[in-house]
Simulated scan of single mutants.
Amino acid sequence: MSRHPRIAQNVKLFINDHTSIAEVYFYFKMTIHDQEKTFALVSEFSPPHPGLLEDSFQMVFACSYHADTSLRLVEAHTIQSVVAMVPHQFPGIDRTLFYLIEQPGLDVLTIGGIEEDIPDKD
């Protein structure tokens, strides 16, 4: 039986001027040199499929999922947002990829009459 990442556990990370997507396994706190820090054990998705990214004018960010083979320990402050990674079989690609959806649920809130101010990232 294959394990697929659950949507609520996927996050966008920003580490060393690089953005990546990962599934969070768990969080924990640890004291290092008298300073308490919060960490997350994550499984990073692959970089986006280059052909899909180029063919879609940088709009389709689709990645492979590697489960326990791509584990990484990150500081919690590197997590930028919660995202959805939706499984999909793209034409011409022989494996399932997961494509990125940022701000999942925002469209449902708008339909329900709830609006959220999204600050500019300037």
Rank of each mutant, 00 (worst) to 15 (best):
R3L: 15
R3C: 15
R3A: 13
H4L: 14
H4Q: 06
H4A: 15
H4P: 04
H4Y: 06
P5I: 08
R6Y: 06
I7Y: 00
A8F: 10
Q9P: 00
Q9N: 12
N10P: 04
K12P: 02
K12H: 05
L13Q: 05
F14D: 11
F14C: 12
I15L: 02
I15A: 05
N16M: 11
N16W: 07
D17P: 14
T19F: 10
S20L: 02
S20A: 08
I21S: 08
A22F: 05
V24N: 01
Y25E: 02
F26C: 12
F26I: 03
Y27R: 06
F28I: 08
K29G: 11
I32R: 11
H33A: 01
Q35P: 06
Q35G: 13
E36C: 07
F39A: 12
F39S: 07
F39M: 07
A40P: 01
A40D: 00
L41Y: 01
V42F: 01
S43L: 12
E44C: 15
F45N: 07
S46V: 07
S46P: 00
S46C: 10
S46Q: 08
S46G: 11
P47M: 12
P48Y: 03
H49Y: 08
P50N: 11
G51Q: 09
G51P: 00
E54N: 15
D55T: 06
D55W: 09
S56C: 06
F57A: 13
Q58W: 05
Q58R: 14
V60I: 15
V60N: 04
V60H: 06
V60R: 06
V60T: 15
A62C: 08
C63Y: 04
S64K: 10
S64V: 15
Y65C: 15
Y65R: 11
Y65N: 13
Y65P: 10
H66I: 12
A67H: 03
S70V: 06
S70C: 15
L71A: 15
L71Y: 08
R72I: 11
R72V: 03
R72T: 10
L73E: 12
L73D: 12
V74R: 15
T78A: 14
Q80P: 14
S81W: 03
S81R: 12
V82G: 05
V83L: 01
A84D: 12
A84I: 14
M85G: 13
V86M: 06
H88V: 00
H88K: 05
H88S: 14
F90C: 14
G92P: 07
I93G: 13
I93E: 01
D94H: 13
R95D: 05
F98C: 03
F98H: 02
L100D: 09
I101V: 06
I101A: 09
I101W: 04
I101C: 03
E102L: 07
P104H: 00
G105I: 00
G105T: 03
D107A: 11
V108W: 02
L109E: 09
L109A: 07
T110I: 08
I111N: 00
I111G: 04
G112D: 06
G112V: 04
G113R: 05
G113S: 13
G113M: 11
G113N: 02
I114Q: 04
E115K: 02
D117F: 10
D117E: 08
I118M: 01
I118H: 00
D120E: 07
D120K: 15
D120Q: 11
K121W: 03
D122Y: 07
D122L: 09
D122F: 05
D122G: 09
D122E: 11
